[in-house]
Amino acid sequence: MQLYNKLSSKERAELIDQAGKNRLTLSFYQYAKIGNPQIFRDHLFITWDALDVLGRIYVAHEGINGQLSLPADRFNEFKAHLDSIDFLNGIRLNVAVEQDNKSFLKLKVKVRKKIVADGLNDESFDVTNKGVHLGAEKFNEFIEDEKTVLVDMRNHYESEIGHFKNAITPDVDTFRESLDIIEDDLKAHKEDKNLVMYCTGGIRCEKASAYFKHKGFKNVYQLEGGIIEYTRQVNEKNIENKFLGQNFVFDDRRAERISDDVIANCHQCGSPFDVHTNCANEACHLLFIQCDSCKSEMNNCCSDNCKEINALPYEEQKALRKGQGNSNDIFKKGRADHLPHKKNLRNIYEVLNENKTE
């Protein structure tokens, strides 16, 4: 029985076009104890492949984290399957703000050690002792309180294109890095400040809130369902939107526009722009922000060197890559030194000092 994807992205895209059906992009997560992640993974793949589900799903002993798309007319079947699983019965599904039939082009269900790479020893603290969840309306109230420190738990390339008003946006490459930085910078305010956190869909804050409570923070809160659920509530309940710009997402859409504000800049020329792209040179593939003008001038490349390589015949490019491995720039997400216009993210001290002077 087939337990892995056999179609290329191009082949899958053609099938989606031929089907002519609208697809839904959604995400969900759940911490739970899964005895045999491999058996659970295989069960999910067999069932979801039959429903034409595509996406990226991680399964571990600690639970499941999924971002996926499926035909809209099969949503009820999919939901019924989730509800048939005890720990997924009634789970909240974060439906994407902006839909794209080709947000995912393969079904990948993978067994991992953790559903989010947090680097934490879960045996050292109570992971169920989480912070207080805040809906959109209550969240808006909290972030206007002078006693609140609002922290973005995402990485620098995510917060660069969009974040909440007055949020601290740690200049980090990974979720794990941010935990120690936040604890150290806020150690003098463990009792007198409200620590309010948010992320894309809520999963990072689930673990982070328990971790910070373990570290002695007395008033810990998190945005229920993350930016995605916040946006849904804002739209449905006519609540003031305090998110600026775009919400970075980990699929082929790359982002969802939450407000008309453009808070980022092209990394090459500095003009206002907030759309990420990958360098066209396959040996680089750097994720960075590039405006339409620079994209045309640079042929979708991040540097003159990459532009020259990308202009070579494919076989010559392939020969140059042979034995070289991947460029480290692939994982830097806009860190490359040759990009002159990179946003300076605000640190915790700046925000605290701003609050003192207001």
Rank of each mutant, 00 (worst) to 15 (best):
K108R: 07
N328L: 14
F217I: 01
E14L: 15
R41D: 03
V127I: 12
L195F: 07
H267Q: 14
D126R: 03
D184G: 08
L320M: 13
G225V: 03
N300F: 11
A50W: 08
E240I: 11
V262Y: 04
G323D: 04
K342V: 06
D192R: 09
Q324L: 11
Y29P: 01
D251K: 06
I39H: 08
R154G: 03
K187W: 00
N129C: 07
Q290K: 02
D52H: 06
G20S: 08
Q246K: 15
I57V: 11
Q324M: 13
P170G: 08
D304M: 09
K342G: 06
A208Q: 02
D126L: 06
E98K: 10
I168W: 04
E62R: 00
H267S: 07
L54F: 12
K190V: 10
I309N: 01
S159P: 01
V97D: 11
V234Y: 07
E229Q: 15
A72N: 05
D329E: 14
K130E: 13
E158P: 01
A311I: 05
S159F: 06
R254S: 07
I115W: 00
E137P: 11
F250A: 07
V95T: 01
E315H: 10
N265F: 01
N155A: 05
N353H: 06
F212S: 04
F142T: 14
E236N: 13
L287E: 14
D122W: 11
N89M: 11
V116C: 01
G135T: 11
G20T: 07
H285P: 00
E183D: 14
K237F: 12
K165Q: 08
C199W: 04
E62T: 05
Y314R: 12
G202F: 02
D185Q: 13
H81G: 02
F250I: 09
I16L: 11
F217N: 04
A167Y: 02
Y221K: 06
V249N: 05
N22H: 14
T277L: 06
H214C: 08
C302Y: 00
R253S: 09
F28H: 05
Q290H: 00
Q246C: 14
S293R: 08
L339S: 01
A255I: 08
D180G: 09
E14A: 15
A32D: 01
A19E: 15
E77A: 13
D49V: 08
N5I: 10
A283G: 15
F217V: 04
T148W: 03
N76M: 09
H133P: 06
H61G: 03
A283Y: 09
K147I: 11
F273A: 05
I34Y: 01
E282S: 13
